[in-house]
Nucleic acid binder design. Structure first.
Length: 290
DNA sequence: CGATTAACCTGGAAGC
DNA sequence: TGCTTCCAGGTTAATC
């Protein structure tokens, strides 16, 4: 589900019910997601107040007044849902939950906002997501954190930066753009879209990227991400915002999921094709992307 | 070191 | 109405 625009949409949705709010009644429906929950996860969240909600790449960081940072990665199907305080509790009936949705509600807690308490639930059917509780120094010590590449919508991503990190590498642009250590936050959808927008072939090796290409690609990345954030992300299959609202950027896809359909580049008579790069589908136009 | 594949999971859609 | 196969927004370990 979630690439940078979807994660940013989730952050913005949680802002009004988490910023400045005190947490309580934390319940876990199971001992792990992708990884086991941190030791004493519920105890360390209970009573804490959320000071600030940050997003870095596809990670959500909730800074607590206890000095802990509650880090969440949504994986492929992770979703936060805000509901009123009257809904069904998470309890021992979890494994016999009646509905499919209940079976995938893995975390439930109460957030005490200025306007009263609300439930915040975390759902994740495939459980590729994970949650961590780290002190700042512990976070900075993690390799996956230190090695994160440029934040695409910040000044860290420039044509020069892109050229500098791509041009020594022989891998195809598709693979380079998916590498979170070079640029952090893009996933399969927005990589395909940015490549098409910039007219570059996903197969072009990094070594063949000219400074002019880097400019076009940088511009395309920022353009597609900004438009997607503005649209509330892309809702394909099961992504929705924290109130169940759907993003609508999926209606703006120019290549993703459009195999066999006509290329939308003005004047291009091409047909969108699909091929596999490192196990992931790439959608592209063989005619106008070179 | 670079590059591809499998694995982690579940559910939905498509094919037979 | 089944049953099987393929596919999915991500990351990482294993393997060539």
């Amino acid at each position: 589900m979630p690439e940078l625009p979807e994660v940013e949409t989730v952050r913005r949705g949680l802002l009004p019910v988490l910023e400045g709010a005190r947490l309580s009644d934390v319940h876990l429906g199971r001992p792990n997601l992708r990884y086991p929950f941190p030791e004493n996860f519920a105890e360390r969240l209970n009573g804490a107040t959320v000071l600030r909600l940050e997003r870095r790449a596809k990670y959500l960081l909730f800074h607590l007044d206890t000095q802990d940072i509650w880090v969440t990665h949504l994986g492929m199907t992770g979703r936060f849902q805000i509901t009123g305080a009257e809904t069904r509790p998470l309890d021992a009936s979890y494994y016999h939950a009646v509905t499919t949705q209940d079976r995938h509600r893995h975390v439930r807690l109460l957030s005490h906002t200025a306007n009263g308490p609300v439930h915040i639930d975390y759902y994740d059917p495939r459980r590729f997501g994970f949650m961590l509780l780290l002190r700042p120094d512990e976070l900075y010590a993690r390799n996956w954190w230190r090695e994160l590449g440029a934040e695409p919508l910040s000044d860290a991503l420039t044509p020069d930066y892109l050229h500098q990190v791509f041009s020594p590498r022989r891998q195809p642009l598709k693979t380079l753009l998916m590498d979170q250590r070079l640029i952090a936050g893009l996933g399969n959808i927005y990589v395909c879209e940015a490549l098409h927008l910039s007219g570059l072939s996903p197969d072009r090796p990094g070594t063949a990227l000219t400074p002019a290409d880097s400019r076009r690609l940088t511009h395309a990345i920022k353009q597609v991400l900004e438009a997607a954030v503005k649209a509330g992300g892309s809702s394909i299959s099961d992504f929705s915002g924290t109130s169940g609202e759907l993003g609508y950027f999926q209606h703006s896809f120019r290549v993703y999921g459009r195999e066999h359909q006509p290329c939308l580049t003005a004047g291009c008579p091409g047909t969108i094709a699909r091929k596999i790069h490192s196990g992931r589908s790439t959608f592209f136009c063989p005619l106008c992307q070179s």
